[in-house]
């Protein structure tokens, strides 16, 4: 399409600059990770002394052996996968359902509901109150209490609503004329069109769930109900006095090497989600569906 038209000199230079800039930005973002990975595979002495830059020194798997040491790692990993999986699906469903009516200008009660969402986005009852909530429902030390808090983010709701508003109205109108109700229009016409936004919001929720440990710290005291991030976070906090806890293991570990390994272990799974979602970010999807 566009590439068929010859660009002017200026535009071509601009594109070159664009590529160059993006490459630099991407490298600046990548290098710390290379550094982390190198550290996580390096010997404790080299890491402590700050000798590792981008390539492992005195390679070892000690740090990983420690991070993955016991059943707690695997139970917390399983917990995080379940929380993220269930949470994202439920959250995506509720958010879509809530956002769709709000994207209709004619929806009566729209203003009141929107104001309610804005209000609750800013005002927060505090941790004592939500502790009472979970305790009353007898949900402490479960996975459900880690799913509930993030099930609907007003922020994501508003983004979703804005995306829905941007869809061509003509399509929906034609569906209505064909006799389709709101729900059928949503499921069979709107959602396929909104794939990029569903992917975006889904990513936001998944990352939110995967990274969160604030609520687990409030609600969970059973070691085997903790999520991965809490497990790693606490492990790292404690590694700073690891010599007290376990001088033998500590002799082969450094706290920054441990941190690095924990980052590698905890971010890799969720980083892999994005490239997978990227196929929904393809242009021309909208066009194709309208015409088809």
């Amino acid at each position: 399409m566009r590439s068929g038209i010859r660009d002017s000199m200026g535009v071509r230079v601009g594109k070159g600059v664009n590529y160059a800039l993006l490459t630099v930005v991407a490298l600046i973002c990548l290098l710390p990770f290379v550094h982390m990975i190198a550290k996580s595979f390096s010997g404790a002495v080299a890491v402590s002394a700050g000798k590792v830059t981008f390539w492992p020194q005195d390679p070892t798997l000690n740090t990983y052996r420690y991070v993955l040491q016991d059943g707690l790692f695997f139970s917390s990993f399983r917990n995080s996968v379940i929380i993220t999986g269930c949470g994202t699906l439920i959250a995506l469903a509720i958010t879509t359902m809530a956002a769709y009516p709000l994207s209709k200008q004619h929806f009566r009660g729209r203003k009141v509901i929107l104001l309610l969402y804005v209000f609750t986005m800013l005002f927060y009852g505090g941790m004592v109150a939500i502790y009472v909530f979970m305790r009353t429902l007898n949900l402490l030390n479960t996975l459900v209490c880690q799913i509930i808090p993030l099930v609907l983010s007003q922020y994501n709701l508003f983004v979703m609503k804005t995306f829905f508003e941007g869809l061509p109205e003509a399509i929906e109108e034609s569906a209505h004329i064909d006799g389709a109700g709101h729900i059928r229009t949503l499921v069979s016409i709107v959602l396929p069109l909104a794939l990029p936004s569903l992917a975006t919001i889904g990513l936001f929720y998944a990352v939110g769930y995967w990274n969160s440990y604030y609520h687990a710290m409030l609600f969970v005291t059973r070691p085997d109900a903790k999520p991965l991030q809490m497990y790693l976070y606490e492990l790292i906090t404690k590694t700073q006095n690891l010599f007290e806890v376990d001088p033998v293991i500590a002799a082969g570990l450094s706290s920054s090497g441990m941190q690095a390994a924990a980052i590698v272990v905890s971010t890799m799974p969720i980083l892999l989600v994005y490239p997978f979602l990227q196929r929904y970010f393809v242009k021309g999807l909208t066009i194709g569906s309208v015409k088809g």
Partner: peptide
């Protein structure tokens, strides 16, 4: 469609206020 979201908001966000 609005019901699940509203139940959640009232139950988990408004009540704890």
């Amino acid at each position: 469609l609005s019901v699940p979201g509203l139940i959640y908001i009232v139950g988990y966000k408004i009540l704890p206020l």
